[in-house]
Structures are given as C-alpha cells and as structure tokens.
C-alpha cells in the first residue's frame, strides 16, 4: 500500500471534513524562503496552449505566488477599452449613458504594450495614448422589391441591428503607419449594440484608452484566470466486479478505469487530474474505505482565458514583469531614503 504520507503536502478529502497529511520532509508550505531551494523545486509544465486559452502547471511553489500572479493578471495587467464616447446624434431608443456603457464593454483588439497610460483624463487624445473609432449608422426601409412580402426585420429594414463590426477605426496622427487595419478593431464582429427602426440614427465618436482591471473590469485582459490543486486518488483496497463498476461511476469520466485480468475486473486509477473532487464514493459503505482522495498542495493547475487582445502566455509574462517592476521601484525607494 502506498502511503499518503509521502514527500508531498496533501489535503485529504474525508467524508465530512478536510484533513492534512504528514509529509516526511519539509515542504514549501513550512520552509524558510530561499531562492536556491525555490529554483530547485519550482517546475512549470505547459499542458495546453491555444489562441485564447492556456493551461499549465506550476509545481513546487507556495500558494501565495500562484495567488499573486492570478490577482495581477486579473486586475493589474493593462488593456485597451472604450472610455469616452462623444454622442453627436442618437435617435435610437437606447439611452446615451446605457449606450456608452455598453460600448465600453466591447473587447478591442489592440496591443496595450504599444500605448501609454493617459495621465490626465481631460487632456486631448493623442496618438500615443488613445485610439479613435467611429460609429455612424442609420436605419431605413429596405427598397428591394424582390423581398417585398417578407415580414422578417432583416428584409424589411436596412441596418436594423447595429453590430460591433460597424465600428470603424479612425487613425490619429501616425497611427496609420504604425498599425494595420486588421490589428485595431473589435475582437468579435457579432456583438449586438442596438436595435433600430427606420429614422433612427447613431453618430458617435469613441475613444479607447489604456488602463487596468483595478480601474474598471472592462480593462481586464482576461475573461478569467484561475488555479486549482492537482487531485490525486489512491485505491488502497482491491475493488472487484460489480463494485469496480460502481467505483468508476463515482468519479468523473476517465478518472477510474477497469482492468480485465483472468476474467476478473479490478478498478485502477487512470487519470485523476480532471476529477472534480466530488465525494460520491462516500455514499457506498463498501467503497468508502477503499479509496483515499487527496489534493497536492504545492501543485497548481493554472488556467488563463484571454479576452483576445493578447495571447495568454503574453498576459502571464506581463504579470511577472509587473510584479518585478513594482518590487524594483519600492526597493529603489527604500535604498534612497
């Protein structure tokens, strides 16, 4: 039998409570912080890296570090969003302030690293700190005779739905040379902004600035960032036959599998990583003593979901840089005084 008191710090999920194991060495959780030891223990493993999503493991670190990076990515890594809306004309039924708020929430594709923070909110927008867009659209009756008898709104009216694709970028100063048209625009083309009827009109000037999630959630570069501990399941008593099949059903699909050997079915742990940690096993008197469910306390499964302006790996690197520059400037400050 494998012991749960190995060299990893673990939490044990019991029927009604959560306990901890007794690791046989000192772990990151109770050790003195030393950079050499940290470097030796720390490991990163990338599991999945897609356009907008990324999953990776950070192994051998103290929870504070995982949480610090999570917090920085959510609220301190900057991005661009519409901050000011000049309403020249709005005869649609949606009110000016609701429309302005809604426009602010549209995710923009623009690299925030190429912009400066706007220091004075009332200053003129310039090429280094702002992006200008235009939304000019008018709804009218559709004169096309071929679909005369249709009663679908798309056939009866032109521009009855205003989408994010109708937002046009207006370059300021040298921005025309600096950026390409396809790099500066709303990320999604099909976000519905307003519905209109003939005679309704929108004429807006939009200004996007750079800021961070602390200021307003629309500036957060991520849809979400979260981490969870690696689940680990151990079968400590042989589970056979019908009981094995019941055990499989107690966990998420793929976690426990059945091994056929000499006409006998035995339950084995296949992959505990994607287990939800549900405690269904404890419903069965005969199964509850057969498994130990644990979570490894220094193994973090990080998941970053980008909104789309930056790749998830760039967002993570930005968060490292931010923490570093923050510490550097504070240290400089301390040394100066």
């Amino acid at each position: 039998m494998e012991s749960i008191n190995d060299d990893k710090p673990r939490v044990i999920l019991n029927e009604y409570k959560v306990t901890q194991n007794f690791p046989n060495t000192t772990t990151v959780l109770d050790d003195t912080f030393e950079i050499k030891k940290f470097k030796k223990k720390f490991k990163i493993v990338i599991i999945r890296n897609e356009k907008y999503e990324m999953e990776f493991d950070m192994i051998g670190i103290h929870p504070f570090l995982a949480n610090t990076f999570r917090r920085i990515m959510l609220s301190e890594v900057p991005s661009m969003a519409i901050e000011k809306v000049h309403i020249l004309n709005n005869t649609s039924i949606i009110q000016d302030e609701v429309l302005a708020h809604r426009l602010g929430l549209i995710p923009l594709k623009a690299d925030p690293r190429l912009f400066e923070n706007k220091t004075d909110a009332n200053a003129e927008h310039n090429e280094n700190d702002s992006l200008e867009f235009e939304l000019k659209i008018k709804c009218s009756n559709n004169k096309d005779q071929s679909i005369k008898n249709s009663s679908r709104t798309e056939d009866m009216y032109k521009n009855s739905n205003v989408y994010s694709k109708h937002i046009k970028w207006v370059p300021i100063g040298n921005q025309k040379d600096k950026f390409k048209e396809q790099d500066v625009r709303p990320i999604h083309d099909d976000i519905l902004i307003a519905k209109m009827r003939p005679g309704h009109e929108l004429d807006l000037k939009l200004f996007a600035t750079k800021s961070c999630g602390k200021d307003h959630a629309k500036f957060s570069p991520v849809a979400t960032v979260f981490y969870r501990l690696l689940p680990d399941i151990k079968i400590i008593k042989e589970v056979e036959g019908e009981a094995a099949e019941r055990l499989v059903k107690c966990f998420s699909p793929g976690v426990i599998s059945i091994r056929h050997e000499k006409g006998k079915k035995t339950a084995v742990v296949n992959n505990a990583r994607y287990d939800t940690g549900s405690r269904n096993v404890f419903r069965y008197e005969d199964l509850k003593d057969a498994v130990v469910m644990t979570k490894v306390q220094d193994h973090f499964i990080f998941s970053i979901e980008s909104v789309g302006a930056m790749q998830p790996d760039v967002i993570f690197k930005e968060s490292i840089n931010l923490l570093k520059s923050k510490c550097l400037s504070l240290l400089e400050d301390l040394n100066a005084s």
Binding site: F33, I35, F38, K39, F42, I44, L65, I320, N321, L323, K324, C327, L328, L330, L331, L334
Partner: peptide
C-alpha cells in the same frame, strides 16, 4: 523585495 524580484526572474 529582493527575493520577490529573484522569484520573478526565475519564473
């Protein structure tokens, strides 16, 4: 602060 800076570099 110095240790945190080093942590960032290692990460």
């Amino acid at each position: 602060l110095d240790d945190l800076i080093k942590v960032c570099d290692v990460t």
